[in-house]
């Protein structure tokens, strides 16, 4: 059988086990555990889910079922500067799609992908609750409001170095 395992470092395993322990190894705390792990690793690769499965003593299939259910969890690493375009209704009617198209064009990637140098990744999300600023773009933790397609180049320029 072709089982290829990507090794987690021991401290990574210990970290995950520790997280499980802080939540009493209770399977009902799965989502909290996953949040903490994603915050730490940036994403939730299969290996991490395996260790969580061990820590919480629950089938890894169930964990994968949960990870794939919630859009907040991701199994692919994000770019150094993750870009999220809000496609909530308020942003949509104010032209968020055109902004998204501009990002796609500028970066040459589709939603859910990262640039080759792993600098940027592109995702869309539903309403960050800043509808007053529609259309809204998030780059990392920074929020850009009232973004027009013409602004895209300048936004990307900020992260050139």
């Amino acid at each position: 059988m072709s089982h290829i395992k990507i090794e987690l470092r021991k401290e990574d395993v210990d970290f995950i086990k520790g997280v499980c322990a802080t939540f009493n190894n209770d399977p009902q705390e799965l989502i909290n555990v996953l949040h903490t792990c994603q915050e730490h690793f940036g994403y939730l690769p299969a290996e991490v889910q395996e260790v969580v499965s061990d820590g919480l003593n629950m089938p890894v299939a169930k964990i994968y079922g949960v990870v794939t259910f919630y859009s907040f969890f991701t199994m692919t690493p994000k770019g150094k500067h993750p870009i999220s375009i809000c496609l909530g209704t308020a942003c949509y009617v104010r032209g968020a799609e055109k902004v998204l198209d501009e990002f796609k064009k500028e970066l040459g990637i589709q939603v859910g992908e990262s640039t080759k140098d792993n600098k940027f990744s592109l995702s869309s999300l539903r309403c960050v609750g800043a509808c007053g600023l529609a259309p809204v773009v998030l780059v990392g933790d920074k929020t850009y409001g009232r973004v027009a397609p013409d602004d895209v180049k300048n936004i990307l320029k900020e992260y050139e170095n």
């Binding site: 299939a61 994968y64 079922g65 259910f69 859009s71």
Partner: peptide, 10 residues
């Protein structure tokens, strides 16, 4: 209680 499969995706 084998837990080999689960509902996945959405």
């Amino acid at each position: 209680t084998v837990g080999a499969i689960s509902a996945v995706n959405r």
